[in-house]
Design a protein around this nucleic acid. Sequence first.
DNA 1: AACTCTTGAG
Length: 749
Amino acid sequence: MATRILPSHPSALPRTHDPNNNGSGCSRSNNLPVRRKAEDHPVLALLDDHRRLDADGIRRIHARMLRLGLLGHPYSASRLLAACSLSPSADLRYARRVFDHIPAPNLFTWNIIIRAHASAPDPRLALLLFSSLLRHSPHSPDKFTFPFAIKAAAELAALREGAALHAMVAKSPLLRSDVFVLNSLVHLYAACGDSNLSLRVFEKIPERDVVSWNSAITALAQGGRWDEALQLFEEMDGENVRPNDVTMVSVASVCGKKGDLELGKRIHSYIERNDIKQSLILDNALLDMFVKCGSLADAESLFDGMTTKDSISWTTMLVGYAKSGQFDAARRVFDEMPRRDIASWNALISCYEQSGRPKEALDLFHESQHADATPDQVTLVAALSACSQSGALELGCWIHAYMEKNNLELNFHLTTSLIDMYSKCGDVDKALHVFGCVSRRDVFVWSAMIAGLAMHGRGREALDLFEQMQEAKVEPNTVTFTNILCACSHAGLVEEGRLYFSQMLPVYGISPTADHYSCMVDILGRAGRLEEARGYVENMPMPPGASAWGALLGACAVHKNVELGELACKQLLELEPRNHGAYVILSNLYARSGRWDAVAMLRKWMKDSSLKKEAGCSSIEVHGVVHEFLVGDISHPMKEKIYLQLEDMASRLKAAGYVPNRKLVLQDIEDDAKEKALYLHSEKLAIAFGLLRSCSPAPIRITKNLRVCDDCHSVAKLVSGIYNRNIILRDRYRFHHFTGGSCSCMDYW
DNA sequence: AACTCTTGAG
């Protein structure tokens, strides 16, 4: 590869012309007047307007220049080169051939070809060209060459190469004080994620221009140092540098990230008062700022007044509506926009997925396929995440196969999403397979795999993986520890949990957060060490949150400790007065302890306070389509068959001695008004549908948004035995693998 | 003969 893209050594090329002959000698064999210089030839004027030239136009001029013998002349040849590499529709392979045939390229020529590749899809070529300039040409790179080469390094976020270029610059007094070169370096370090280095270069620039300031402000903005970025913007004034439209783009973007509408409006009026040149990019940045600050009204009025709009403008509005829950309006924008690119699709798909509407996200993903929108990595990450949420394993597998078929590169993000999808869709072995196939893993990939093993109750393996992660020298982060503690909790590994928790700060330098404390409460509580768990809650360095009290309440429910349970529930309700789940668990605790009076009282109280609960919903995927069921759902096209199947289930279960557990009807409260609704719980509808539409040995995979109730859990166990079908049920907290009449959670969840 | 900084989806 490297040899193929290197230019031929100039001396290896046939020398048709003597470069020392300064050009005029080449006109011997054609009909140019002898005295005319090559750089004056009228055909060159045709090259002046890059923008209006298309590929054909360039080819024609190229042919004429060949006939005229103009290409042997470095000046005229580079005019052609500039035209074909810098036009908007540049064909760089063509430019490269032109370059390779220029007998003795001068420095200008080298600079043009490096520049063209620096902002092309593969900037590595620019760096390779730069190195062949050093090795194969008599010229040394100058103050024009470096900005292009540094830009290429910035595009690649190639810190090592960038620093090497910086070192070369530092050796030359002329280069190291050149504002263009230094501005490029400010940008380079920012692009490599090092805003400190970036600022250090900025501070050493002798005469900073507006681009210097813009680069530094952007460096701070991208490094998340928003207030410092704004401070720098204020300081420009003091140094008498006038902000321009590019400055304001960065400032607006910072403002959006801070979500500060007050400031946003001040910025907007600053732009108008100071006659900042308006541009499409600036308008888009302002639109985005208003959307991020939550002011759709400001965004709308700006959008309506814009004379030119591109797909970024439209997509920004779309996101504004979708993020505020106005999906109909978002869809309208999507349908109205003149041109949709893949980012527009991604925006809508991601918004659905992030608002907990995975079915809509996947419907839209299917639609994008039919619309011939080629999915990119962002699309696939969003679609995989929607699959994870709804348990759509088949579709997830299809996406995985699609990636392999199209040789899509697995980046860390996609790898993490795939592992997460397989784990959450119940196929943790497939997740392990993906994990084993990738050669490079970052902390998120490792953490996702640990989480996958944890949610399937395979705690030992999760801890083994953590040890391997450290051997691989990947630093764990706060999420890793949440997953490790979660693994300990689901597998009952009390001592291990205690050990890792105690090591967090001293060994790994990670302060335990409220989440980690809650995990410890869960670990100790599940194991029946309620007093110790209570001690953790009471001695947290931060005020205990709902998750800590919730974990304690759950443990009390399992171990039937009414007194402590009531205390935990009271605390929990003080933090979240409308937490429906808290009442459900407390009533569960009362029921298990035989306190039916208290159960009845709670139920009445809940009815009176008209607490709305999250609707229980189970989804099941059959042949790549996700079907959702609510309690007593009659909206499914196959409802008659489903209800017949339910009756069949009921009679066969009854024959096996099953008695519906009416007393626990409050537990999951899919419908607290009708006790008989018990057997219409969404899980049961989904199981019935699964029995109808799929065949052994394929397991029936169901995903439930709430914790599975006692009754559904017993039914699933019985069905797995009576119908000889494996059922894999994911509830809000973990997986249940039902086989031959029993469950992998050992009835402890 | 020319260069450096900017906007939407994750």
